[in-house]
């Protein structure tokens, strides 16, 4: 029997006056998933999250969490959610401890003091200091404690590691994974740092200019048509000479670093690139799946090109693609 999604949005659209926030966002996130939500600044990640939390109302479309309408039963939904906003701010005159206590007191089941102290120790943050004395990173740590301390079924994390140093970032993802294993909670993680999402997410959605352009598992995303090709030539001059001979429209993100050419190409174009290579005196060749970063950048590059096409048509086309992808994953996760 198929599982009911924890989060489900149907054609979620938000306009801020005439300005588009998001358009026809369809998402289905299943229990115990760690779902990455990727996109550049202004892509619509925070808008989607704020609609899910009922901080803003959609222009059209619906959103449900735990099967409950986000506009009608938000208190019941919030009882089972912990959230870190993208722009995390607290009352500057409060201490870290007072901030955490106050926020957690709004839950019916408050977290234990010892748990809060443990998190504070692990994250190395002094809860007796006033928020105004905190660095951005330390404020973020308070947010992390607020997300991890309550006993909830869903974590909604909007850029949770921004401002954290690499060590604490790793600690955070470790704590997050532990929390997920212990409580089997679902995690909705928005970020633009792909390498971080890559570490923990099962599936990701890529959003750009308000529309979801892909929903896929990490493996699928990495195998999506694109290949990263690294060609080494004997000298930089030869590399430069060959750079102009690459078959037209096959290479993307073409760059030269001394005697090495680096490019992305679709799987379909792989044959023409390889047949061109036959006639060159390349020294070494490396073909690999691109990093998520490369795929992500590629999506950004493609989107402005599509901007001039009929928006409505584009939205509908994407919607069909997304529905297809979601259907595939629904089956996958509904076991």
């Amino acid at each position: 029997m198929p599982q009911t999604p924890i989060i489900q949005t149907k054609n979620l659209t938000k306009y801020y006056g005439k300005h588009l926030g998001i358009r026809n966002v369809n998402l289905e996130i299943y229990p115990q998933e760690i779902f990455g939500f990727l996109g550049p600044n202004g892509a619509g990640k925070t808008t989607t999250i704020r609609i899910l939390l009922d901080l803003i109302r959609p222009t059209s479309g619906t959103a449900t969490i735990f099967g409950l309408d986000t506009q009608k039963e938000i208190e019941r939904i919030h009882e089972k959610i912990a959230y870190i906003p993208g722009e995390l701010e607290f009352n500057k005159n409060w201490t870290g401890r007072r901030t955490i206590k106050h926020m957690l007191n709004l839950y019916n089941h408050a977290a234990k003091d010892s748990l809060i102290e443990n998190f504070a120790q692990t994250l190395k943050v002094d809860l007796n200091k006033k928020v105004k004395e905190f660095s951005k990173g330390n404020k973020q740590k308070i947010g992390v404690i607020l997300a991890l301390a309550p006993d909830v079924e869903l974590l909604v994390l909007d850029e949770p590691t921004s401002g954290l140093d690499p060590l604490i970032k790793n600690e955070f993802y470790k704590l997050l994974s532990e929390k997920q294993i212990q409580t089997k909670c679902t995690i909705f993680l928005s970020s633009h740092i792909l390498s971080e999402v890559e570490k923990v997410a099962n599936r990701v959605a890529i959003i750009n200019q308000g529309s979801i352009i892909q929903v896929a598992t990490l493996n699928q995303l990495q195998q999506l048509a694109l290949k990263n090709i690294e060609i080494e030539f004997p000298t930089p001059d030869q590399a430069k000479k060959n750079l102009n001979k690459i078959p037209e429209k096959t290479a993307r993100n073409l760059t030269q670093q001394t005697n090495t050419l680096n490019l992305l190409c679709s799987r379909e174009d792989l044959h023409s690139v390889l047949s061109w290579l036959k006639d060159t005196n390349f020294k070494d060749l490396n073909v690999r799946n691109p990093s998520l970063e490369d795929i992500f950048l590629e999506y950004y590059r493609v989107q402005p090109y599509e901007k001039n096409s009929n928006n409505k048509e584009r939205g509908e086309k994407q919607n069909v693609e997304i529905t297809e992808t979601v259907r595939t994953h629904k089956t996958r996760y509904a076991r």
Binding site: L53, E75, R76, Y83, L106, Y107, L146
Partner: peptide, 9 residues
């Protein structure tokens, strides 16, 4: 945002 994301209408 943080306050209204807690279980309070």
């Amino acid at each position: 945002d943080l306050t209204l994301s807690k279980p309070i209408t």
